[in-house]
Design a binder for these strands. Structure first.
Lengths: 155, 155
DNA sequence: TTATATCAGTTTCAAATGACAACCAAATGA
DNA sequence: TCATTTGGTTGTCATTTGAAACTGATATAA
């Protein structure tokens, strides 16, 4: 990333942390169980200098944690923190969009499924805090408690 | 983006189209109702050459459509296509993550709410095709119909 | 024991991309 | 009519990227 966004917006701020395409491939692999430097490197194809840089940032930002494994400290495991794991819905939403709008029905290289049934999931759903589904047309984005200035918001 | 990812993965492929932080701010503004070149430029702060480039790509990729408004073609409106609107869950997931993990409860500059009740939504939910919620622990990512090679997949 | 491979990076350097400013022509608006 | 807005293009310079070579430990194999 070249310059962090100053906007007081959760989207802009999240992009400051994970607004890089390599970062997402790294996070994807982490969800797939990869933990080691070389694992990320080989499975994503990222250059090692970039991987070192991205992992360092991700650790600083609290998305990954770096653990010393092996006895004398030259082997490390990188794992998602709770904050990192919380990115799962974003990743799943991306995956579902890619399946639908790039590959199309029947051509999906990966599917998100329910282990119990083995069947693919429906698109992520908007729900109220009481668990009731909220139709897309009822969505709105409004200023929150921490708002300073006023973006024009209509969903 | 410098070089498109070759992975046969919906996440990697979607990142080829929208793996850029400016692109997401442009899309965010589009959901907020912005349609004009200058609107995007002023509200995001992106340089004009980059905006021109990003909009052109987004139109080529079918995420935006460019309409000629005004009579002789120097005024345009950029709007999300259906494919573009389908990115909403990704954006909402990003927004919710930013609220929770960057701003924290009570400090959210923006909130996603249900128009009907005015109350903030819960995090996006995984649901089966029959509408039943799927707990996060039952999620798995597996090879789909279009899979060629085999990534190790565990959610 | 010695050799070989793996791990987790760092360094180097050319090429691509980014940010910023200046410029521009057509079309509006006052 | 004249200034302003719109939607860019062009040029310059700084930063980032990607690829490869290099390091210096540790683990594994013969």
């Amino acid at each position: 990333m070249t310059k962090p966004h100053q906007h007081d917006c959760p989207v802009a701020q999240m992009l400051n942390l994970v607004g890089d395409h390599w970062t997402w491939l790294i996070i994807r692999e982490a969800f797939f169980g990869v933990t080691r430097f070389n694992g990320f490197q080989q499975r994503t194809g990222i250059a090692k200098n970039l991987l070192a840089d991205r992992l360092e940032r991700l650790v600083l930002d609290g998305i990954f944690e770096k653990k010393d494994i092996g006895q004398k400290g030259t082997r490390y495991a990188y794992g998602l923190t709770a904050k990192g794991k919380a990115l799962q819905p974003v990743l799943i939403a991306m995956l579902q969009w890619g399946n639908t709008h790039i590959y199309g029905k029947g051509n999906e290289p990966l599917q998100v499924v329910d282990k119990k049934t083995g069947r693919p999931l429906a698109p992520l759903q908007y729900v109220a805090t009481d668990g009731r589904p909220v139709p897309r047309s009822d969505l709105a984005i409004v200023k929150g408690a921490g708002a300073q200035r006023s973006p024009q918001t209509q969903a």
